[in-house]
Design a protein around this nucleic acid. Structure first.
Lengths: 133, 133
DNA sequence: ATAAACCCTTGAGTCGACTCCAGGTCAAGA
DNA sequence: TCTTGACCTGGAGTCGACTCAAGGGTTTAT
């Protein structure tokens, strides 16, 4: 399968697919006789795997590290497990922060008619009270 | 309160506080007679407010837009409400994506001893089955 | 056999979000 | 008074993650 089709399936631009391969974020894709990339199911599943982490907000460097370890074989399992556990922590943290942002938004939306203006001293007091400061 | 203390309270570096003010992400902070920033509760609550959005992953430009509207008064309420609702959508989307990343990680961790190696064709098949592809 | 629509690599450019620096002001203590 | 340390501005530099462009090869349809 050519890069264009792989791009349509994965939603990643051809330029980006080549870029990700260049920096080792995804393993090298098989080539045909003329050196043109020929994506197969394995290539696609790597992209799918990697993009889930990327969309979760993980830095490409961490994902790259994981992928490179995976390509090196069995003896890198402990290192990979460590990365996964670290990443999980990071994502849980992110989840909590997004939840906090959502809380602020819902608060603003709920009390929209009263509270959407510039912040005033009274609002600050109310704010503090709500957070026990 | 001097910038250093404001920095300690908010966890945002002084350089960054000045930068955020420069780009209009937070409103101008009051100054003392010699032109030195003098943070008060209102300044701090703006920073707190803005940082919640930022930590949620919202682009600074969107936050800036909201803050600038809020500074312009009552007649910008509808626009601000729209931004909040848009942001909420975006954050919910992010939440879902992070949840997906976490699912992948948990899957990998659960079946660690069997599945942590390079991706194989059998794994691709299992993968597809699990996602009904 | 020529054009159109793909593909390739390498390297440069862009953009958001910092981060640092030079050169200068100001306030408090020895 | 002089040093020390924290502050100021404006601008340049950095970094991650793209994104584009130049220059060239290949395959397919007409």
């Amino acid at each position: 399968m050519l890069i264009k089709q792989a791009s349509e399936i994965t939603g990643v631009s051809p330029d980006n697919l080549r870029y990700y391969e260049r920096i080792g974020l995804i393993p090298e894709v098989p080539r045909n006789a003329s050196g043109i990339r020929d994506y197969d199911d394995v290539s696609l599943s790597w992209i799918d795997f990697v993009m889930r982490f990327k969309r979760g907000g993980m830095p490409l460097e961490s994902i790259r590290e994981y992928v490179q370890l995976a390509l090196q074989g069995e003896e890198t399992k402990p290192a990979r497990k460590a990365i996964l556990m670290e990443s999980k922590e990071m994502l849980l943290e992110k989840l909590a922060q997004i939840q906090e942002s959502l809380d602020v938004i819902d608060y603003k939306l709920d009390t929209y008619d009263q509270k959407c203006g510039p912040i005033t001293l009274e609002m600050v007091e109310e704010w503090k009270k709500q957070r026990n400061l």
